[in-house]
Design a protein around this nucleic acid. Structure first.
Lengths: 340, 340
DNA sequence: GAATCGTGTCGAACCGGTTCGACGGTGCAC
DNA sequence: GTGCACCGTCGAACCGGTTCGACACGATTC
């Protein structure tokens, strides 16, 4: 494999001159520049990434920590990953991916050994045990998901409070007076998946303010348990005319469940989910939903991270916590409550 | 950040001695070894990956090229990725991920700049344009998917021919005489997705041998088109009593389609798919299916790749082409044809 | 015609590891 | 008591880039 020394020799200049000719960091005569460029083409030269990283203390690689936990729904996670990966590439960065269950290990390995210039953490829990490690790392970090303590990192998330209010509002305006909200498994909440209760609490509060009933319940994140959960809950609250689903697995299972119960949305039940449009198409879900914008969040996180890596953000520029406002995508699954 | 020079100074030895104490490549007195280890702990020393890569010409990183093309079904691809990623980690490697549409670019970048020790290519087409580049690269490569030319790389794939025969056989034995096979979009075939016609041709041949009818058709890979395709095909072949689905998007859309048509499997229609058990659970698909074993294929590819990287495979050990035998997972969606 | 300046190039040092050859010291054999 | 082997450590070189300071040379200025 050709080195810059080979390029220099072929072009008849010193190594440093070859380097400057390629980087443009010093003025170089057109003649020399052309000879160096010709040598690069002739030899098929590409800089050695390790050597460059050693010399510049920059790798142009971003670490991406995605945990595929038992109780999370994998296809939903994929969309965040793709948003991150594609944006990174557009900005000239590669992605070092970890899907390790023990994210702390992976994080330490990447940051301590300086394999990466920055870190993106997906699916951040309220008291995420990766955060203390990330704060001590010399590389900047960007999160998708809102932790309790946001110091030292840039944070991006859907405004789940607003999403909860929006869901309740929408059905309240149509005349619904008794709603059922299906969240993630309680286990996710215990582990610190704050988005679950952020949406749930806001929904409960919104229902209280408007004087309507809201049954907030947990649901599994896998088949076939989640299907059974849905049946059980629909049995338990026969008066509910609106169903709010903040659980991708439950949303994916809902068509089958409604079919089994011979129910149609919105004729028998109004339904509002919380998932991306892409997700809706993949699972052919016909329900109106709050767009969770995973690609957009991934994109925002990488953009900001790169700004920090490249020092375009001032060194003491404060970190950001940015919420994406939820938008309701109407797929016609809500209407006046049955009987009205 | 601490370097090995710092460790050596704290331990009161030379840099080379510190290096040997940590690698164990030369005998070292217990006293010195202990002092070096203490210094490592005290300073929180981790080797710099770039420097090590430069010195050893090894990065302990594997490049993973996954293309998320418009006409492929993303959640299916995810499972291959996870198989690769998790196995790599178990073997002490990290994953450099590319989801770039232009895989050739990504491949060249990774190999030429020596960011990776080896390459895994997913979703390999028959005349995959990444292959010539991979063959010229100094790093070994492992493929998931069968190209026309397997020279210079290790290849792993499901035995799609066998899968096609198995599907037809299974329904033939139950007494079915007219079958409908739904494949990927024709576009995937044109691009070189050989697995489509490998299964299809074998199925056609098996049907011919057994003297039964098989309608082989293409289907879209996205909602809502694929749903419409299924309706159209079921309309077109009302005599078909068995449905074979070699198209994940179609399989995922099938419950809704059958529901709309008021059909039940297996009472009205016997169904056999071709997807993983994990996929079946995620999409709560109640159909018997040929296990496509994405995690296993990813795992095999990485295992063999690492063997080559680490030179455990002899330098001239011939490359392997290995097929996973399909197995039918019975979920009770097949029975005697209606009317029998 | 000498002093000054700017341009373009070079040599050397550095980034942080690994590894080879050399060498001093100890223990053993004869 | 000399010779030899082996053990443990060190210095130096190397991997392949980048970057700093020095410097030669031609053009400008007075």
């Amino acid at each position: 494999m050709a080195t810059i020394g080979d390029v220099a020799r072929v072009a008849g200049v010193s190594r440093s001159t070859a380097s400057y000719a390629l980087s443009g960091k010093r003025t170089i005569s057109v003649d020399v520049r052309r000879r160096v460029e010709a040598a690069v083409r002739e030899l098929g030269y590409t800089p050695n990434a390790g050597a460059r990283a050693l010399a510049t203390a920059q790798t142009r690689v971003i670490g991406l920590l995605a945990q595929f936990l038992e109780d999370e729904f994998a296809p939903a996670m994929l969309q965040y990953m793709l948003g991150v990966s594609n944006t990174a590439r557009e900005l000239g960065y590669d992605i070092l991916l970890s899907t390790e269950a023990d994210g702390r290990n992976a994080l330490r390995r990447m940051t301590d050994s300086r394999m990466v210039d920055g870190i993106v953490l997906l699916n951040v829990a309220e008291h995420d045990d990766r955060l203390p490690i990330l704060r001590e790392a010399p590389q900047p970090g960007a999160l998708v998901g809102l932790p309790a303590d946001c110091t030292g990192v840039d944070v991006f998330d859907l405004d789940f409070e607003d999403a909860g209010r929006l869901m309740v509002d929408h059905l309240h305006r149509l005349g619904h007076r008794e709603l059922l909200l299906v969240s993630q498994p309680e286990h996710v909440v215990e582990r610190g998946g704050a988005y679950v209760w952020r949406l749930q609490n806001a929904a409960i509060e919104a229902a209280r303010t408007r004087g309507i009933t809201l049954h907030a319940e947990f649901g599994s994140s896998h088949q076939p348990e989640v299907g059974r959960d849905l049946h059980r809950l629909l049995d338990a609250y026969p008066g509910a005319t609106g169903l709010l689903v903040n659980n991708e697995a439950a949303a994916a299972a809902l068509p089958t469940v409604l079919h089994d119960r011979r129910l149609t949305a919105p004729a028998d039940l109004s339904v509002v989910g919380r998932y991306s449009d892409e997700f809706a198409r993949t699972f052919s879900l016909p329900y109106s939903s709050i767009e969770s914008a995973p690609d957009r969040l991934g994109r925002m996180a990488v953009r900001e991270l790169v700004r920090r890596i490249e020092g375009q953000a001032g060194p003491d520029e404060p970190h950001v916590v940015r919420f994406v406002s939820p938008e309701l995508v109407d797929r016609g699954s809500t209407a006046l409550p049955r009987g009205d």
